[in-house]
Structures are given as C-alpha cells and as structure tokens.
Simulated scan of single mutants.
Amino acid sequence: MMIDGLQCGHFDRDSFIKLKSAGVHGVVVTCGFWEGALESLDSLGQWRDLIRGNNDVAAFAYTPEDITTAAEAGKVAAILGYQNANLFEGRIRLVEMFAELGVRVVQLTYNNQNDLAGSCYEAEDCGLARYGRQVIAEMNRHGILIDCSHVGDRSTLDAIEASDKPIAVTHANAASLFPHQRNKSDKVLHALRASGGVIGCAAYRNITGDYYSGPIAQWCEMIARTVEIAGIDSVAIGTDRSHNFTKPDYDWMRMGRWTREVDYGAASAARPGKAPPPDWFQTLEDMQIIPDGLRDVGFSADDVAKITHGNWLRLYGQTFRKSNT
C-alpha cells in the first residue's frame, strides 16, 4: 500500500482507477486554495457527489483505519484537505464545523501571508499570529492535521512549537538538496524529526530540480538524503501531482483574486506554464515503481513500508482523532 500526502486538481473516475493500479490506496486531495467558507462547502459537496458516484473504486477516509479498510476492499481512500485556511474566514468556530464535515488536513497559509502566519514567498516571515495559535489549538482539538508546506520557515517552527500534536509538511523537499523558497531548511526538518512530524517528498519539478526529476533512482536518492536529515520516521511521499489541470487552473492556483499581475508561484518567467513531470513519473500508474526504487537505493523492507505508508498512518493516528479537552 502507498499513501500520497498531497495531490490536487480535478479528480475523476479515471484518477481513482489509475491510482489503484499503481498501488496507491490513500491520498490527501486538495479541496481548495483561495476559496472562502461557502465555496469550500461547495467543494465538499462536489467531492461527496464524486465519491458517491464512484464508490466501487473510491471512499472517504476520516481515520487511518478507513484507509486500511479501503485498501482491503480494493478502493482508493480520499482524505479531505485544503491548501489554505481561508475556509475558516477568521471564524474560530468553523474549525470544528469543517472537522465534523470530514476535513482532516489544512495548510495554515498558501502562497501569501494571511491572518494566521507567514508564507514562504514573503520577503519577511512574520511568524505565527495570535489567531494562528488559536486555530492550531482548535485543529489539535478537533482532529485536523496542520500542514506547513507553503508556510515560511519561522512560522513553521512556531507551529511545531505551538501544536500539541505533530504537524506535517505534506508536499515539499529539503532546501539543502534543492534550494527553493518552497522547500524546507534543515532546521525545520530537524524540528519535524524531534516532534514526530512528517515531510512528504514532492515530485513537482519546480521544487525538485531536474536532477532529482530524472530516473526513479535519482528521486529515491533524494528521499535517502532527506532521511539522513529528518530520520526514517519523518519522511514519506507527497508528490503534489495535479489531475486534469489547464491554464485557468494554474492561474487560479497562483493568483487567485489577490493580484492583477502575473504570479508564477513555484515556477518562473523562464518556466511559466505547467512544469514537465519527472522523467520517471509520466503517468499516475508510474507510482508503482516507487517501492522497488526505494529498495534499489538501499532501504530495507521495513523502511520502504514506513516511507510508502507507515509514517503517514502513524501521524494520522496521532492527529485525526478529537482530543478529550
């Protein structure tokens, strides 16, 4: 079994069939980037329609046991997530309400500083705001995993310290292996290791680089080097793969409604559009070569199991359940 810590885009029946074929039985899906509360509810409704219409190949997962049950039934478990905290619209009580609707992963910020914390793309990371600390406490209380993938390093370290439960960086890489604003410093990776958090190594060329986007052995080499920094219990998979995206989707993802100007996100003026997929990852089905790739670079069977699914299952078990407080 494999679990992907984050994918995005327009999933359809074919997406689930291909993931199942690749041996992926759990995936955190992106239900929104910039949307407010009402649009986020619309997205949840659309996801319910999609899973209901394809319940022979897909199911929702609200606990780690749900993922295991889906895998045993030959289905792909969708774990509901958002890449921004806009869905809460500054209302602390909405955290509990969205948790009750099945949301299990929320990123504190996306590409911009917001009222919770600082983004990786701001000139200065403001750190965690007072409201951000309140939201983290509510997420801990109601079973939502805190994601800091697009969050600035200072804010990420603040979140690790503020959270009673371990957090995730669901889709990023080590900045010491490929320097990029979206990637995480060794200091952050050490803090994840010390706190029981997990980083999902990405396969998005713009933050992975051309070398680690080559053959599967080179991407798995990146994972091995990340394990050297963060430890075997804190490294997993978070490909950041997109489904059926077109230019308007990339424009929305990068620019939302907040600017009149062109923003490239993790891309650049030299590479403005859709980044070419890694050489080894031309189709979703290609994910099936990951376990053998990890074995070929020297990981044991137990370590492969941790990276492909065990570390996510452990973290979900620690975070998806409501606290007694």
Rank of each mutant, 00 (worst) to 15 (best):
residue 1 M to G: 10
residue 4 D to A: 00
residue 4 D to R: 00
residue 6 L to V: 09
residue 9 G to A: 08
residue 13 R to D: 09
residue 14 D to V: 14
residue 16 F to V: 06
residue 18 K to R: 13
residue 18 K to S: 14
residue 19 L to T: 07
residue 21 S to M: 15
residue 29 V to L: 00
residue 32 G to K: 05
residue 33 F to C: 15
residue 33 F to W: 13
residue 47 W to T: 07
residue 48 R to E: 15
residue 49 D to N: 15
residue 50 L to H: 08
residue 51 I to A: 13
residue 58 A to D: 06
residue 60 F to G: 03
residue 61 A to N: 14
residue 61 A to T: 04
residue 68 T to C: 13
residue 71 A to W: 12
residue 72 E to F: 07
residue 80 L to M: 14
residue 82 Y to N: 09
residue 82 Y to C: 07
residue 90 G to H: 04
residue 91 R to C: 09
residue 94 L to F: 12
residue 99 A to M: 08
residue 100 E to Y: 08
residue 103 V to I: 09
residue 104 R to Q: 08
residue 105 V to G: 09
residue 105 V to F: 04
residue 107 Q to G: 15
residue 115 D to V: 15
residue 115 D to G: 09
residue 118 G to Q: 02
residue 120 C to D: 13
residue 121 Y to F: 15
residue 121 Y to T: 15
residue 125 D to P: 10
residue 131 Y to C: 07
residue 139 M to L: 11
residue 152 G to F: 08
residue 153 D to R: 08
residue 158 D to Q: 06
residue 163 S to N: 01
residue 164 D to K: 12
residue 165 K to I: 11
residue 165 K to R: 12
residue 168 A to P: 04
residue 170 T to P: 02
residue 170 T to Q: 08
residue 174 A to K: 01
residue 175 A to Y: 09
residue 178 F to T: 13
residue 179 P to V: 14
residue 184 K to A: 00
residue 187 K to W: 07
residue 188 V to C: 10
residue 190 H to V: 07
residue 196 G to N: 00
residue 198 V to L: 06
residue 199 I to F: 05
residue 201 C to E: 05
residue 202 A to V: 14
residue 205 R to E: 13
residue 207 I to R: 08
residue 211 Y to A: 07
residue 213 S to K: 06
residue 213 S to T: 06
residue 215 P to A: 10
residue 216 I to G: 11
residue 218 Q to H: 10
residue 219 W to L: 08
residue 220 C to F: 03
residue 221 E to L: 10
residue 225 R to S: 01
residue 231 G to H: 00
residue 232 I to V: 10
residue 236 A to R: 11
residue 237 I to F: 04
residue 238 G to Q: 08
residue 239 T to A: 02
residue 239 T to Y: 01
residue 240 D to F: 01
residue 242 S to W: 05
residue 246 T to C: 07
residue 248 P to F: 04
residue 254 R to T: 14
residue 254 R to L: 14
residue 260 R to L: 06
residue 266 A to Y: 13
residue 267 A to L: 15
residue 272 P to G: 14
residue 273 G to D: 12
residue 273 G to P: 09
residue 274 K to S: 10
residue 277 P to L: 05
residue 286 D to V: 03
residue 287 M to Q: 07
residue 294 L to M: 11
residue 294 L to E: 01
residue 299 F to R: 00
residue 303 D to V: 04
residue 315 L to W: 09
residue 315 L to F: 08
residue 316 Y to V: 02
residue 319 T to I: 06
residue 322 K to C: 13
residue 322 K to W: 14
